[in-house]
Design a protein around this nucleic acid. Structure first.
Lengths: 104, 104
DNA sequence: CGTGTAAGGAATTCTGACACG
DNA sequence: CGTGTAAGGAATTCTGACACG
C-alpha cells in the first residue's frame, strides 16, 4: 500500500507565465500571494518559480476569497489552521499504523 | 457520460527546459523528435513549445527505442499505425453510440 | 493593503547552420 | 542519421522600487 500519491497534479513543473494564463491572474498577483505565504512554488536552479496544477487550484480559491473582500492575512490564518489539522491527522494515522503493525 | 478526459495529464503546459529535466533528454533531441513528427508540442503565442505529461511518457518510449537502435523513421511508422487504429476505433465507437441513441 | 508599472539584468527558448560519422 | 555546439535575437522571469489609495 504505497503512499506515492505524487501524481502529475502535485508536480511543480509550470512557470509563472502559464500559471498566469491558466488562472487569469497577473504575475504580480501570483508573486504577491507567494510573498504573503499563501502559495509555495518551488524554484529551479537559477531561481525561476515552478508551480503544480494543485497550485493552480489553490490560486483560484485565493482569487475567489480576495474577490469576496477577504484579506490575505485572513486567508493565511485559514491556511495555517488547515495545515495544523492535516498535520494532526497525519500523526494519528501514523499511530494507527504503528498499532496495526504491532499486531503482525 | 462526458468524454472530457482532458485531465492534467494531457494539458500542454511545460516548457522544453523542464521536459529536458524530466526525461533526461537534451533539448536538441527533443526538438529533433518533433522535427521527425514523433511528438507534437503546442506553441504559445510567441512560439515557445508547450508539452504535457503524456508527452514526457511518449518521449521516454522514443528514447528507449532509439537506444535499441530503432530509427526515427521506424518509430514514426509505428506511430502512424497506432493513430490509424485509434481513429478506426473512434469511428466504430461513434457508430455504436449512434445505434444506441436511436433506440431512445 | 493589493496591485500596476517601468527598469535593468539574468536566464530561456528559438531557428538555421556547421560538424561528425 | 542522430546529436552537439556556437550564434544572435526575441521573449521570459526576477527583484526592488515607486505609485495610488
Amino acid at each position: 500500500m504505497p503512499v506515492d500519491k505524487s501524481s502529475y497534479k502535485d508536480k511543480k513543473v509550470m512557470s509563472i507565465g502559464i500559471i498566469s494564463e491558466l488562472t487569469g491572474l497577473s504575475e504580480r498577483k501570483i508573486r504577491y500571494y507567494e510573498e504573503r505565504k499563501l502559495i509555495f512554488p518551488e524554484r529551479t536552479g537559477k531561481g525561476t518559480r515552478k508551480y503544480s496544477f494543485s497550485d493552480v487550484e489553490r490560486l483560484m480559491e485565493i482569487a475567489d476569497q480576495i474577490e469576496d473582500g477577504v484579506q490575505t492575512f485572513e486567508i493565511k490564518k485559514e491556511l495555517t489552521k488547515r495545515q495544523i489539522r492535516d498535520e494532526r491527522n497525519k500523526m494519528i494515522r501514523g499511530q494507527i499504523n504503528a498499532q496495526f503493525n504491532m499486531r503482525n
